[in-house]
Simulated assay, not measured.
Amino acid sequence: MTLRTAPIRLADIHAPVRGRLDAVTDEIRRIVVSDFAPVDEVNHYLLKIRGKLFRPGLVLLCDQLGGGESRTAETLAAVIELVHLATLVHDDAVDHSVLRRGMPTVNAMWSHQVAIIMGDYLYSRSITEITRLGDIEPIRVIAAAANAMTVGEMRQLVSHDALSFSEADYNRLIDSKTASLMSAACELGALTGAPAHREALARYGTELGRAFQVADDLLDYTADPSVTGKPSGLDLREHKVTLPLIHALPRLSRAERAEVDALFRDPEPADDAIHALVEMIAAHGGLEYARERALESAQRAHDALEGLPAGPVLEALHDSVVYAVERRR
């Protein structure tokens, strides 16, 4: 299939499952409800700043690919979103981030201790709910993804200030942190509605996750902060090594490399130093290379869908790939 480049709206992708996403939101509220006021207060805040339900949408789309609509899939979609939310809460605490989607993080609003506890709460509520279904396969899928994401977080932690971080290291990181949960979302949907296509949809989710993360790392260099809700150049500011920088590093002159080393030694790099490094990376092809890598994974995601049942759901899955690569936030 030829890659589309026209803008894709998430609302259009979700059209085949729009009504069911409301049920997912209700499920999320039901699963996390607590009669302990401090937990309930943070839950209420997290639900206000939750994301666009991209991963739950994948669960429902893959479920509907088989022609039916499973109520179990709606619960699994809620679980996927809560696991994702738990990882974000923990990530923000580990990274000492103060903004998420333009809003204060849990660790900024309360404390790092509260953030860690709430991330654990979301994980535990998710596992409690999925065990209630009485099927070992969804537990197996979620457990594998959760383990991969935990290892991925450790990989990212050791990549801070690590200019020796290689492209192979980066690939392992994004497979762990992002592709694993995208693949799990698609596989869970296949389990409930399209079991014959489980392997293909899991593979699709992996490639979609890779494309999504590379595009996300590229956005850190190119996006408007007023659109993304976070400062531009945040990865460089936090000394995170991602694909554009990895590609550019061996192509730098000695003087340019000295500038990079100096920025990574500075605990609080100045805005002009960040801007200069972004321009340097762009000049050495780092942004274009990352873009090409995202498109390669996107094409493999499209390829994984070949031969699956045609219709609006399949088109939405293809459009999800375009959205992942072309989005601006």
Rank of each mutant, 00 (worst) to 15 (best):
M1W: 03
R4I: 11
R4D: 13
I8P: 05
I13M: 06
A15N: 04
A15Y: 00
V17F: 08
R20T: 03
L21S: 05
A23M: 11
A23G: 07
V24F: 14
E27A: 15
I28H: 13
I28Y: 14
R29E: 15
V32F: 05
V39G: 06
D40F: 01
E41A: 15
V42R: 12
I49T: 14
I49C: 02
G51W: 03
R55G: 06
L61M: 11
L65Q: 06
G66V: 10
E69F: 02
A73T: 00
A73P: 02
E74N: 07
T75Y: 09
A77C: 06
A78N: 03
E81A: 10
A86Q: 07
V89Y: 00
A93V: 00
H96C: 08
S97W: 01
S97M: 10
V98S: 15
R100H: 04
R100P: 09
R101W: 03
R101Y: 01
M103K: 14
S111M: 03
H112M: 09
H112E: 15
A115V: 09
M118R: 05
M118T: 11
Y121A: 06
Y121R: 12
Y123N: 14
S124F: 12
R125H: 09
E129Q: 15
I130T: 15
R132D: 10
D135E: 12
D135P: 04
I136W: 04
P138S: 08
I139S: 06
V141N: 00
A144Q: 09
A145Q: 06
A146P: 00
V151Q: 04
E153A: 09
E153W: 13
R155A: 03
V158D: 02
H160C: 10
D161M: 08
A162H: 13
L163D: 08
S164D: 12
E167Q: 15
D169A: 11
Y170S: 09
Y170C: 13
R172M: 08
L173N: 01
L173S: 02
S176F: 01
S176E: 02
M182T: 06
S183V: 05
S183E: 05
A184G: 08
C186K: 14
L191D: 00
G193Q: 07
R198Q: 05
E199P: 01
A200D: 05
R203L: 13
G205I: 14
G209A: 04
Q213D: 13
Q213E: 14
Q213T: 07
D217T: 02
L219I: 00
T222P: 00
T222Y: 08
D224H: 06
V227C: 03
T228C: 13
G229N: 10
K230S: 10
G233S: 13
E238D: 12
E238M: 15
L243V: 12
P244A: 00
P250D: 11
R254M: 11
E259K: 13
F264E: 15
R265F: 06
E268L: 10
D272A: 11
H275L: 13
H275T: 12
A276S: 14
L277C: 11
V278P: 11
E279W: 01
M280C: 10
A283P: 11
G286Q: 04
E292H: 06
A301T: 05
D303F: 04
A310P: 00
A310Y: 00
P312K: 07
P312N: 02
L317S: 01
V322A: 11
V322S: 13
A324I: 03
R328C: 10
